[in-house]
């Protein structure tokens, strides 16, 4: 027996193309901004107030401003146009790219697989995540571990900036790490590691409690993914503007 003969790719009458288009444009703009700031190699540290942008943290090469290298300078200066963030971005990017929410977002928006529910995809063949390279999405938990370590570094940066007093930049850094922490903790791999992999919650009450709390955050994973991503860019922009002298930091104390 054959399927019903319906030629139209979709009969949806709503604006199904709007969410994938919005996602695509949003991710594209953020990628362009992040690439520009990564290769700019400057205006990442405000010496007066100890603000370090999360995009350059930790700053681990000898070309970093010494005061910005909170954890030392482990590597020699990178050659040519290469900049310090290139050492950490693969881990942060890997965490976002293999994230279960972002997978949905870019499979729909960038690869049209499918572009929206009940809208036919343009590809003639589909193997999903069964083979290389997409089978590597299963490495998400390792990027989660790496991102968690980098989050601790960001928290250290945000807290240590309070040593110079209190300004708007401190508040921005604090909100930024809060959003990053919420996004990282709400990760599906984190939920699984905390307790999801158990078969008997009743035998592990602490892990069950952790799983229930993470599940609440996990319900907002998409919102946290966008909020944290946009706020990292805004934080970086603020630090860049203060570091370049374009604006001055609004100080509350000192």
């Amino acid at each position: 027996m054959a399927r019903a003969e319906i030629a139209a790719r979709t009969l949806r009458t709503d604006r199904w193309w709007l969410p994938p288009l919005t996602t695509f444009v949003g991710l594209l703009l953020i990628s362009i901004y992040a690439a520009f700031r990564t290769f700019q190699g400057d205006y990442y540290w405000v010496d007066q107030y100890h603000y370090l942008t999360p995009m350059y943290s930790p700053c681990l090469t000898e070309e970093c401003v010494p005061a910005a290298s909170h954890f030392g300078q482990w590597f020699p200066a990178l050659p040519g146009f290469l900049t310090p963030p290139l050492l950490i971005i693969p881990f942060l990017l890997g965490f976002r790219i293999t994230c279960y929410y972002y997978r949905k977002a870019y499979y729909r928006a960038a690869w049209a697989s499918p572009p929206a529910c009940a809208v036919a995809e343009p590809h003639s063949k589909y193997t999903g995540e069964t083979r290389f390279p997409l089978i590597a999405q299963n490495l998400h938990r390792y990027f989660f571990y790496a991102a968690s370590l980098l989050l601790l570094v960001n928290i250290y940066d945000a807290v240590s900036a309070f040593s110079t007093g209190l300004g708007l930049g401190n508040i921005i850094l604090l909100v930024n790490v809060s959003l990053l922490a919420a996004y990282t903790l709400s990760c599906h791999s984190c939920r699984h590691i905390a307790g999801g992999r158990l078969k008997h919650f009743s035998k592990h009450p602490v892990r069950y409690w952790m799983w229930t709390q993470i599940s609440k955050l996990n319900n907002r994973h998409m919102q946290l993914a966008w909020a944290s991503l946009i706020f990292v860019c805004l934080t970086d922009l603020y630090v860049a503007l203060v570091a370049s002298g374009t604006i001055s930091d609004l100080r509350f104390i000192n």
Partner: peptide
């Protein structure tokens, strides 16, 4: 493995 979690 075929599922690409697009949530439809």
């Amino acid at each position: 493995g075929y599922c690409n979690i697009t949530k439809c």
